[in-house]
Design a binder for these strands. Structure first.
Lengths: 159, 159
DNA sequence: TATTGTTATACTCTATAACTATA
DNA sequence: TATAGTTATAGAGTATAACAATA
């Protein structure tokens, strides 16, 4: 049993509102609503991936490497929005678990091409299923139309 | 000049998509869209509060103490979803900046009642204005109706 | 000169656990 | 016994800076 919040980074903070507290202006801010919603989403993600040691950035990395085989660590870092040194540590983790491997880049001997192993492909397929399922339940009380609307509005916000 | 990403916790990672990259299943996940939207929101927040040393949790703490004067550190921690030790460090920060103060709790000599100072009240008033303004611009391309819809759907998601 | 990967180092945030004083 | 605040310590994640190899 993993003690909560130790092995996989900061544990998603509780989303529950505290009764009797006045939240004042927070209730009118899109930013605060986003934060609360993301905590709920983290929660769903952790339920989906319990026991795999998978975090959101690691899942993202698996998906990105899977869909863009041969990309470099620098590009992976850029996609994830982290520094090169961080992309390296993340790649190290994937390689250590034998989920991905570094192959020499055919045209540039400074960089690696990243590829999923068979094991990585297989885990990714599993993860995609469960993450998608839990992500679907995330909007448990949302209708399919509302869900699509939300997704569209969020994309518009982030563009 | 503050070097980016040093004094105020992790710098919001870039929200820009990398051209030529296949994002695969990520584009269908509410959780991923939420993350991207929240990065944009962080960005707006940091623009709003540049130079104040204010982070989202610190802003939240100011608002909560302001609207619920006399509450204890433990309750503050529960509202923020952090451990008591963290609530204490956060309170220390507010007290050090003379934005809040601890007063003996009238009925329980184990706990403090937290209150904003005049300076805290004044800063909070400023912050509310700018944060609200930037939060409004956050959905720059959203109509007022879309904004309300988004807020409602996010609340429904997190409930 | 510029870039890739790497290494070393530091910082922020959060957590748990143990301690104290009160309840 | 249980709780509030505190202190000490540890871990994850990220950043910057400097270095070697290569472009």
């Amino acid at each position: 049993m993993r003690p909560p919040g130790s092995a996989r980074g900061p544990r998603p903070t509780s989303v529950a509102r505290v009764p009797g507290i006045d939240y004042d202006v927070l209730d009118t801010l899109l930013g605060y609503a986003l934060r609360r919603a993301q905590i709920a989403a983290f929660d769903a993600f952790y339920r989906a991936t319990a026991g795999h040691g998978i975090t959101p950035p690691r899942f993202t990395a698996l998906v990105i490497v899977g869909a863009n085989p041969g990309l470099s660590q620098t590009v992976l870092g850029r996609v994830l929005g982290i520094a090169r040194s961080g992309a390296m540590l993340l790649t190290d983790w994937l390689v250590r678990r034998k989920l991905a491997e570094r192959r020499p880049h055919p045209e540039d001997r400074r960089s690696w091409g990243l590829f999923l192993t068979l094991r990585g492909e297989s885990l990714l397929a599993d993860l995609k299923r469960t993450v998608r399922a839990h992500d679907g339940q995330l909007g448990g009380t949302l209708t399919e139309t509302q869900r699509r609307t939300l997704l569209r509005l969020l994309r518009q916000l982030a563009e």
